[in-house]
Amino acid sequence: MSTNTLAASDIISSPVFAVSPRDIVAHAPNLMVRHKISRVLVMDEGKLPGKLTKKDIGYRLHHQGAVWRRRFSDQNRVAEYDMRDPVSATPLISPLVIARIFITKKIGSVPVIDNGIVVGIVTKEDLMKSALVTGLRGTIQDVTEDAVTAVALMQCEQVNNLVVVEHNALAGILKSDDIIKEVAK
Rank of each mutant, 00 (worst) to 15 (best):
M43R: 06
I113T: 05
G50I: 07
L52R: 08
V165N: 13
L6M: 07
A99D: 06
S38A: 12
P21K: 03
P21F: 08
K185Q: 15
D10L: 01
Y59H: 14
V159T: 14
I173R: 14
A150W: 02
A169C: 06
S94D: 09
Q64T: 13
K175S: 15
K47S: 14
T144M: 07
V148G: 11
K105F: 03
T3R: 09
R34I: 05
L127Q: 02
I57E: 06
E125H: 11
G65C: 10
R70G: 11
K181F: 02
V163R: 11
N161E: 14
Q141Y: 14
D10K: 05
T5F: 11
T139E: 13
G108R: 12
P29D: 11
G172P: 07
A171Y: 06
E145N: 15
A152K: 15
T53M: 04
K124R: 09
V33N: 10
G46L: 10
D82S: 06
P29R: 07
T53N: 09
L162D: 04
K175F: 04
T144H: 13
G58P: 00
N76Y: 10
H35T: 08
G120Q: 02
S14V: 02
I57T: 07
L153S: 12
K175Y: 03
L162M: 09
R39H: 12
Q158P: 02
D82V: 03
E157D: 08
A89P: 00
K47C: 10
P91R: 01
N161G: 01
D126P: 00
K55S: 08
L52H: 07
V112E: 10
E182V: 00
V40E: 05
G135P: 08
K55W: 00
A79F: 09
A131P: 01
S38P: 01
D23H: 13
I11K: 06
V148W: 01
R84F: 01
T123R: 06
V119W: 00
K54N: 10
S109G: 13
V78W: 12
D56K: 03
D56V: 11
M83W: 00
H62G: 13
Q64D: 14
A184F: 11
N161A: 11
D82K: 01
S14E: 13
E80L: 00
G116I: 00
L127D: 06
Y81W: 15
G65H: 11
A8W: 03
R22G: 09
E157I: 02
K105M: 11
K129L: 09
